[in-house]
Amino acid sequence: MGLAMCPLCSEDEDIEVVRTLEDGRRVVKHRCGYAWEHGAPVAQKTMPSHSFNDLKARFPKPEDVEPKVLERAARLKTQYLATRPDFDPGVAAYWAKYQEIFSPDGLRTCDPRLLKDFANSDVGARPGNQATFNSAWNSMGDTAAGEATRKTIEYLLYGPDDMPIEDRLQHLLTGATSFAMTGFKEALLTRVLCVMQPDRFLTILKYTTEAGGKREIARMVYGLELPAPESVNWTLGRLILWSNNVLRTLVGEGFANQQHAAAFLWWAKDQPGGFP
């Protein structure tokens, strides 16, 4: 099957299609075992376009939450804070270390293994199983994988000034950038933002998930329905950041840090009297 050429073996034989992605690209695998995303996204049907600012203005806002729902959330917050958890002081030290590593100079000079270690660490925020990332890293080797990961983080944090971070995030999520590291996706990209801006980003690493992403928490705690990620007029990159901003405003102050606030939200979503 001459679909593509294996980046590792430079061979175009015995390549099979593993699955087709929602945007029309395919995940293919060579007989050597290496898998990668191949092809360009299929053009979507023409839909009414909306500007970045228009979409942001139309995004659900904290003031959309009903007063009685806010009152319930405030009662839950008071109840939760009465038994304030003791957070591991090692988290702040670990994140301070990676703030240095993710600085422009740090990214250029750090040991690549530090980047792999970050992707597999649960300190401060749990990104889940990173089998795809680890498989790609092991296949590529420390040097090539480290460079791809460095460029991915660099683009997210320090990309073109005229491009909103929401859209840089989207490019990395969809593979629109040729250098994006395989498997370094939503949970890890969000975790980078949590480390670099710990006062802004809640440690809820997925927009939507059965276990409870930002979308589910907004609905279950505040009765706020956020857009579906497959909606044509939105992008996941924008939904990730804008939902964080809404939840950050709604949860308010009084927590030790954003990990504490996120822990409250996960707890609150399961309390009686919430929304299904």
Rank of each mutant, 00 (worst) to 15 (best):
A96R: 06
N129T: 12
L107C: 08
G90L: 03
W36S: 01
C6W: 02
W137V: 08
D122Q: 11
E63I: 10
R58V: 03
A119W: 06
G90R: 08
F52A: 12
Q79I: 08
L76E: 05
G106T: 05
R84N: 11
V69E: 11
W95I: 05
T78N: 12
K77E: 09
A82T: 06
D14Q: 13
K56E: 09
S103Q: 03
S139M: 09
G128H: 00
S139A: 15
G33E: 01
D88T: 02
R108D: 10
V28C: 10
T109P: 00
S103L: 06
G128Q: 03
H30I: 02
A145M: 01
W95M: 02
V123H: 02
K97W: 07
P127W: 01
V18I: 15
R108G: 06
H38R: 07
R58C: 12
S10T: 13
T78Y: 08
P41W: 03
A43V: 14
I15E: 06
G124K: 00
T149I: 08
T132S: 09
S121M: 06
P41V: 00
A131C: 07
D117Y: 11
T109Y: 05
P85I: 08
D12E: 15
F52Y: 14
D111F: 07
W36H: 03
D111I: 05
E37N: 13
E22R: 12
D117I: 06
E100I: 05
T149H: 02
S10K: 15
K29A: 12
L55P: 01
T78D: 14
E16M: 08
Y34R: 02
G146V: 01
P60G: 04
A145P: 06
P104S: 11
E100G: 07
E37G: 02
D54P: 00
D88I: 06
D105H: 01
S51A: 13
Q130T: 03
V123M: 11
K116T: 03
K45G: 15
V28Q: 07
S51E: 13
D86F: 10
D142E: 13
S103T: 03
K29V: 09
P48A: 14
T109A: 10
V69Y: 05
C110H: 05
I101H: 01
P104W: 04
Q99S: 00
F102I: 06
D142G: 07
D64F: 11
G124T: 01
A92P: 03
A119Y: 10
Q130M: 08
N120F: 06
G33N: 04
Q99C: 00
D142R: 04
A92T: 12
T109M: 02
E11Q: 13
L55T: 07
P67G: 09
D111Y: 02
D64T: 05
P104V: 05
G128A: 00
S121R: 08
K116Q: 14
D12K: 09
P67R: 01
G24H: 04
K29P: 02
F118M: 07
Q44E: 15
D23N: 07
C9K: 13
E147R: 07
E63Q: 13
R72H: 11
Y34A: 00
Y98F: 13
E147Q: 07
V27P: 01
N129F: 09
S135K: 14
T78S: 13
T132P: 00
A73K: 08
A73M: 12
D88V: 06
V69N: 05
F52N: 09
C9T: 11
P112D: 05
A93H: 03
A131R: 14
D23P: 00
K77R: 15
L81R: 11
C9F: 04
